[in-house]
Design a binder for these strands. Structure first.
Lengths: 208, 208
DNA sequence: CTGTAGGTATACAGGTCTGTGAAGTCAATT
DNA sequence: AATTGACTTCACAGACCTGTATACCTACAG
């Protein structure tokens, strides 16, 4: 029992600190490079407490990715809520959220990194990483549909293209250290969207 | 001495086997998840030999990435050599090389993965990963220039966009398991290139 | 007053990690 | 005949890994 199912804010103070410290260390040093001893020590907590709260390192990794996933989705949906109604602009919202999300980081995307570190398809952490990208792709698809794209191959292909641009921008930014990567990817995304959508300005609420 | 500087084909049979095995294991299981004991055993070689040939695990990691980098660059340049002279098609060659390069893999890009696993900026392996992406971006820039793009911001931004599409396609393919990701990214790249280049068909050998 | 939850401290089991040391084998070159 | 390169076997250091066990402390709720 213990953790995993609820995963809510029902964390004890110690567990909260453990998760915060673990998140920081997992992201910056890598999941496999950080041991539970370090996490416990850095949290001001004994290893016993860590295992009482989280059960295993794998669970802690999953909790880290889950929390990160929720933060990311909340960030995007909040920006969508406050975004202007222009449908094309809304499609680009995930790109607008990126600079703040990536901050100064040279560490790239925590989910892609986790994917790289967890080859086991059954690892709960890997599943969360996959779910995050799947969610983002679905979000692009939905936003495109709202923007008046006809259902069909075009929407699917365009959603994939936007996802690729998005993920690739993070890599270009982190690996090649290209500060303009996100803005460039956003511009490319805009071009693709306006170039593919049928009503090129899509002002009227679609043809349905 | 020993390894690192020459890095050529001057490998002893044992070293060759070690490098082959290590490459396979590092790619599929992750660098930090594979120990030298496993590599030595799987190579039919003692740990002593491994250290005599490569000096350290970090060196072996660097050798792995170096070899992979060379294979990738050779693949792309060979395809460029055999490619038709159409300048736009030549820009897309790295995308055409992807399906064969990624094969059935669900493990994504070995360099991005290494980047995720090696947070230390001084690690020789990380440098190689960065160099690979930097090279690809420069290649896109050069191919765009040959395609008649005017020097300036456009070329730089477009090169970044192509790199992002390229890297993102690998992630979409590996993480989301989207088989069409590479083709979609290629189509997007084509759209961006033809939409941005001045001479929209760029048939004449540029304006210089 | 008696549990229970959330801790603490310490020790340890059983393993794996990278890396080295000492001594020796075998084949090819010089 | 001597040397060198490639390699083996075995042992070991010293650190780190995940995970558990024993025992105690404190605050609070029924």
């Amino acid at each position: 029992m213990s953790t995993g199912t609820h995963s809510e804010q029902s964390l004890t103070p110690g567990a909260r600190r453990i998760l915060d410290v673990a998140s920081e260390l997992f992201y910056w040093r890598g999941i496999n490079a950080v041991g539970v001893d370090t996490i416990a020590a850095e949290s001001g907590v004994t290893k016993r407490t860590l295992y009482d709260r989280f059960g295993s390192k794998d669970n802690l990794v999953a909790a880290y990715l889950n929390a990160r996933d929720r933060r990311w989705r909340d960030t995007v949906t909040a920006r969508l809520r406050d975004a202007p109604p222009d449908p094309v602009a809304r499609v680009l919202v995930p790109f607008d959220a990126l600079p703040e999300w990536l901050a100064p980081s040279t560490r790239g995307c925590g989910f892609s990194n986790a994917f790289a570190e967890l080859p086991d398809a059954d690892h709960p952490g890997r599943r969360i990483a996959v779910a995050e990208k799947t969610w983002l792709r679905a979000l692009f698809r939905d936003l495109l549909t709202e923007a008046g794209a006809a259902d069909g191959n075009d929407v699917e292909a365009l959603a994939t293209q936007l996802l690729s641009l998005h993920e690739g921008a993070i890599i270009s930014y982190a690996v090649v250290n290209d500060d303009s990567a996100v803005a460039a990817a956003r511009a490319a995304a805009k071009m693709l969207v306006t170039g593919t959508l049928p009503g090129h300005l899509a002002d009227q609420p679609s043809s349905r």
